[in-house]
Design a protein around this nucleic acid. Structure first.
Length: 471
RNA sequence: UCCCCUGUAGCUCAAUUGGUAGAGCGAGCGGCUGUUAACCGCUAGGUUGCUGGUUCGAGUCCAGCUGGGGGAGCCA
């Protein structure tokens, strides 16, 4: 392997490891000199939260010429011996016999990351370097840990990962504005007789876009393989400028056959618990950092989440709870009555004030929900569910799907959607139809909830938002 | 897209009723110490986001533009 011993494996080892020869590679965090004839170098390699201390004695060949000139950000390779530390703060350290500078920081004064606290807004402007900071290193590891846990959870429970397409030619859900993709010459697009752009001459022979959801595609595989999921990037061209929206984000969308809304909520609960349990077990170092520096309650919050059962609430019940709150003097900007879509302030009240933890709201009025959601027997509501979390709002949106062709068609008509556009989706209801359900979990929102980070732009490596795709 | 806040040194922020800019950190140099977000001293650094206006005088007031943030809508 080209790289040295991961620091993570050194942190995990005890004093008995002293005496072994090792090689370390990484980036300098800080250097402190002691005129006793040594320098202390903190080196970080990303394998864990902690940096590792290298003790550089002044008899190194390049001590004066190079070691004393190391600054934050320099890439180095060190060979030496693992020894018990004589200082406080670490049990082991490396006594270097050779330090090779692999990459200098050409102008230390202009290196954007200093060994001090930076604002997240500033770090977004140096997104190519921010993974070298404590917070973003931790975010990187947490994000990986949760992504792996997603796949492990589904794999262990018999789900198959379906790679749904990124390019789509149908705006199936109307789930927001889409990004068009085209190979047509924008300055000189072919026109049809009506003067409209003639997309039949475009690459796919029709108008095509980046996906806003893999749901409709994954439903087709669900209706053959029973338990499936997608996990990939999703795109929305909405001009939303908030701390919880991205133009490109990652979404987890499981879909289960022979299942109803209760099974769906059970799945969401089971999966989230699994994810947070894995996070607390596998990333104790990073979570301790988030607890200390970002959000004091984050670990406690996850532990409680894992222990307690999901709070479940009917939409109708949620409305009456909100009405009761209004009667009790609670002020909302938007009025509450049965039939409204819950506003952010209402969701906040339910999850933050009334319940104090995530809550599943189920069975919404059909008029405010999508065409594919199953109409309940009361014919007023559909089997939809949202999982609302304190601080972030909706992290999951899901539903039992309408499996009855006649009802589905009626809904399409109601909403003025052309049936022919959904011919293959309708086929599922004609050939061996089956009750099935699924949901979408916003990956970035999940990370925000878990870590206490305030903005989804800071839990994805390169955030894409309106007017921002610099990196 | 709408509402609100904001843009001063590499970074985080100061600058009284408008009176021509300061600190900490970082950086460079020196000192000291098995140091650990080390400590002490010295030095360098800014056409105050851009354009225009009001004024004897604008970082400060006004207008437009532009960047950033928060909230709303939409959603995940």
């Amino acid at each position: 392997m080209p790289t040295g011993t991961p620091i993570a494996s050194l942190i995990a080892s005890d004093a008995s490891a002293a005496g072994t020869s090792i090689e370390l590679t990484g980036w300098v965090r800080t250097r402190r000199d002691s005129k006793a004839g040594i320098s202390f170098i903190q080196i970080s390699d990303g394998s864990c939260f902690d940096a590792f201390q290298i003790v550089a004695p002044s008899d190194l060949a390049n001590y004066e010429s190079e070691v004393l000139k190391l600054t934050t950000g320099c890439a180095i390779r060190c060979r030496g011996e693992l020894v018990e530390s004589r200082g406080k703060g670490q049990s082991l350290e490396m006594k270097a016999v050779e330090i090779e500078v692999v990459g200098w920081v050409e102008d230390p004064d202009s290196y954007p990351l200093q060994p001090k606290r930076h604002s997240f807004e500033y770090l977004r402007e140096v997104a190519h370097l921010r993974p070298r900071s404590n917070t973003f290193g931790a975010i990187g590891r947490v994000r990986h840990c949760l992504a792996m846990a997603v796949h492990r959870y589904f794999h262990e429970n018999g789900f198959l990962w379906i790679h749904t397409p990124i390019v789509t030619a149908n705006d199936c859900e109307g789930a927001g504005e889409m990004f068009r993709i085209s190979t047509l010459d924008m300055m000189n697009a072919p026109r049809n007789e009506d003067g409209q752009v003639d997309f039949s001459q475009d690459f796919f022979g029709r108008e095509s876009h980046l996906t806003v959801s893999g749901q409709l595609n994954v439903e087709t595989w669900c209706c053959a393989l029973s338990k499936v999921y997608t996990f990939g990037p999703t795109f929305r061209a909405e001009n939303s400028n908030t701390s919880r929206h991205l133009a490109e984000f990652w979404m987890i969308e499981p879909e289960i056959a022979f299942a109803d809304l209760t099974d769906n909520a059970d799945l969401a609960e089971s999966m989230l618990k699994y994810l947070f349990k894995a996070l607390l077990e596998e990333r104790q170092d990073d979570m301790a950092f988030f607890q200390q520096r970002i959000d004091k309650t984050c670990i406690d919050r996850l532990e409680k989440f894992i222990e307690s059962s999901f709070e479940r609430m009917e939409y109708t019940e949620a409305i009456s709870k909100l009405e009761k709150a209004v009667a009790g003097g609670k002020k909302f900007e938007f009025p509450v009555s049965w039939g409204i879509d819950l506003q952010s302030e209402h969701e906040r009240y339910l999850t933050e004030e009334l319940v104090g933890r995530p809550v599943v709201v189920m069975n919404y009025p059909k008029d405010i929900k999508a065409f594919y959601m199953r109409v309940n027997d009361d014919e007023k509501t559909v089997a939809a569910m949202d999982v609302l979390a304190p601080g972030i709002g909706e992290i999951i949106g899901g539903a039992q799907r309408e499996e009855r062709l006649d009802v589905l068609d009626a809904r399409l008509d109601e909403m003025g959607l052309p049936k022919e556009d959904y011919w293959w989706y309708r086929d599922l209801r004609r050939y061996g139809t089956v009750p099935h359900a699924g949901f979408g979990l916003g990956f970035e929102r999940t990370i925000v909830y878990a870590t206490g980070m305030a903005n989804v732009r800071d839990v994805i490596p390169f955030p894409r938002t309106a007017n921002n795709a610099e990196f």
